[in-house]
Simulated assay, not measured.
Amino acid sequence: MIDRRSLIRNSSAASFGALALAVVSSGSQLAYGATDQHHSHDGHGGEDGFPANLTHAERKHLQIFDELDFEIFTGQKWDRLHESHARNIRVHWPDGHFTDGIDKHIADLAAMFVWAPDTRINEHPLRLATNQLTAVTGVMKGTFSKPMPDGKGGFIQPTGKTYSITMATVGIWNKRNTMDEEYLFWDNQSFYAQIGLG
């Protein structure tokens, strides 16, 4: 049995891949193709697009995560982030740093919309769920259309370039159906290159 917490704590692209493989090999089924449109029955499970054998908790976690990305994040409804995130959540970012607490996470998410107001996630191509763990891929898109704060009191002028990056989020859920920890993965080099800063 793989200790998922130690695997995730020492995260890298390779360990994320190993985690996904472990979920698949353990017999958990995949939930495919979630978008912000109605789920269609595609032969992979129930009529709502989820595998038929998910537990109630696993199904609820994936449903909450869909709502998080498609409605709350994309719509900047920060007053609803507590529906998916625990107050003391620890969030691990792709560059290796982490933050603690929902208020800091809201500030970080809101900062993305300052320079790319059309930032959005409208699809989850692949979703995994097993027990208190979910792993979801998404496609985040936006346009570098407004000045970007450089962290030194100045601004980087917009390039007008669009971006579309595949990302993955691993969440560890508690019994209150909120995440205690969230791990975000995407390729920063590709991201900066797409917006003209790489």
Rank of each mutant, 00 (worst) to 15 (best):
A168K: 02
G171R: 05
N131E: 10
Q157W: 10
R120G: 05
K152G: 14
G151D: 14
A107G: 05
F113K: 01
F155G: 00
R120S: 09
F113T: 03
T119R: 09
F155V: 01
I172G: 03
L133H: 12
S145M: 05
M140H: 07
M179I: 06
H105M: 07
H105A: 10
Q157I: 07
P147S: 07
I121V: 02
D108Y: 08
A111S: 15
T134R: 02
A135H: 12
V136Q: 07
I106A: 04
Q157E: 07
T143R: 08
M140L: 08
H105S: 12
I106D: 03
S164Y: 01
T178C: 11
T143A: 15
I172A: 05
G160K: 09
E123A: 14
N177R: 04
T159N: 10
T169A: 06
T137Y: 15
L126C: 04
Q132A: 12
R127E: 10
A168G: 13
L126V: 11
G160H: 13
L109K: 04
A116S: 03
T166F: 14
A111G: 04
D108K: 00
T130L: 10
M179C: 07
K161Y: 15
Y163K: 00
T130P: 02
I121W: 03
T134P: 00
E181N: 12
A168S: 05
N131D: 10
W115M: 01
P149H: 15
A135W: 15
G171N: 05
F113N: 00
K161A: 08
T134W: 09
D180I: 06
R127W: 13
D118R: 03
P125G: 12
G171V: 11
Y183P: 03
H105T: 06
R120Q: 10
G171D: 13
R120C: 12
E182A: 12
L126G: 00
R176P: 08
T169G: 07
I156V: 12
T143G: 08
F155N: 04
I121D: 04
A135Y: 15
D180K: 05
Q132K: 11
G142S: 06
Q132L: 13
Q132F: 15
K161S: 09
D150K: 07
E181P: 01
M148P: 00
V170S: 02
L128I: 10
Q157H: 09
A129V: 03
G154V: 09
I121F: 13
S164M: 02
Y183D: 08
H105W: 12
H124P: 00
G160C: 06
S164V: 02
D108C: 06
P158K: 12
F144G: 00
P125C: 14
K161V: 02
T178G: 05
N174V: 14
K146C: 13
T137F: 14
H124S: 06
